[in-house]
Design a protein around this nucleic acid. Structure first.
Lengths: 209, 209
DNA sequence: GCCTGTGAAGACGTTCACAGCA
DNA sequence: TGCTGTGAACGTCTTCACAGGC
């Protein structure tokens, strides 16, 4: 079924299903129907079945889905059945908050290196013990530590330069917190996390309500 | 033209256009074509014209758009021609990083109050001077400070409770950083900022590339 | 000639409705 | 009976292509 093009929205929902299933597993639920899972995740039940259908058949007709099995399968689909090594660039408030964020580690995302341009920071360690290197060493240290995903927490005017350097490593994915549209080759996947856009959405909806 | 239903994606793009136009204005560009703006924002030129068409006619045929005028108009559409008061709940690493975030203030988003449950934090001030109140006082202080948008930076298991309390204020919009699907009445608009979902997207795309 | 504004066409994603099976 | 799996219908968003106007 890998031939069909899978909607990006499907992947995001799988991630949400996975979280819901983890909670269900902790509540010792063994079976869940698409209807119940849909309620928890706030989507249409048919949507869940369609999303899963892209990857195979995971349920039992008349019964539903076995929570642990489905969780395992979804994690495998998403590639979460292993650890992912992250490289942080920009150790400001936000960058530090991310490194300290427990959810990441729980889900198998590990920061293996951190970078900054501030000479006062370079050579020192973050609260978690992670050493801060100068951005000039980015390519070398990323390769040494085997970083696979880059996390950009720099001011917007520095972000594109960092994205370019990541291509030299090369790094396959970038999580971009800088409010800029990065230009990268198609071999590199970028996901933007854009607080301001989200706030603007709220402002618009409140204004025109 | 307000009768037509406007795609959510259009609003998000307007926000991105607005940022691009701000940069153009700073570079002293006076006119921009949909083609050029599209390149900067990484979208189709027709998309930009369609997005704007929902709200009126802003360009000059054969010429393009006047940067400052269009910027002004888009900001007005989004409701960014005024200040917005934010209430922060959860003063962990992430919450503190947000309060300190300069982009917010620049765009007219101001934190007017902060809350936590930790008795060690309550009564103290954040680095910006913002006093931390106990969550029990949320409704009262939000009303006093006129907070319009709530920002949830609590652990996921506390997020729904906070969302409920926000309804009592009432608050019209929530920016939710907790990895949970909040249940709220239709009068309250929620925007989720979900790092883990984004990382999972990267993991998936890298894995199945 | 050039670029916007926009109806029409096309692509895409979601929901329906029911067949298939425990 | 109950719930999954799925083709078909539907609705939405994006892109095309060209008319309209500077």
């Amino acid at each position: 079924m890998k031939f069909l093009k899978i909607p990006a929205a499907t992947i995001s929902r799988l991630s949400i299903y996975s979280r819901a299933l983890e909670e269900l597993a902790q509540s010792s639920e063994t079976v869940v129907s698409s209807k119940k899972l849909a309620e928890i995740c706030g989507v249409n039940p048919a949507q869940i079945r369609k999303d899963l259908a892209y990857f195979g058949q995971f349920g039992v007709r008349g019964v539903g889905y076995f929570v642990k099995e489905l969780l395992f399968d979804i994690k495998k689909i998403l590639g979460l059945n292993r650890q992912w090594k992250l490289a942080l660039v920009g150790t400001g408030n936000l960058g530090c908050a991310l490194v300290a964020h427990e959810n990441f580690t729980q889900q198998g995302y590990i920061f293996t290196c951190a970078f900054d341009v501030d000479p006062i920071k370079v050579g020192h360690k973050l609260a978690t013990g992670l050493m801060i290197h100068h951005v000039d060493e980015l390519e070398e240290i990323c390769r040494q530590t085997g970083a696979e995903i880059g996390v950009i927490c720099t001011p917007p005017d520095r972000a594109q330069d960092i994205a370019n350097r990541f291509q030299q490593v090369p790094i396959a994915g970038i999580l971009n917190f800088a409010p800029t549209q990065l230009q990268v080759p198609p071999t590199c996947k970028v996901e933007n996390v854009d607080f301001t856009v989200k706030l603007d959405n709220l402002a618009y909806h409140i204004t025109s309500a």
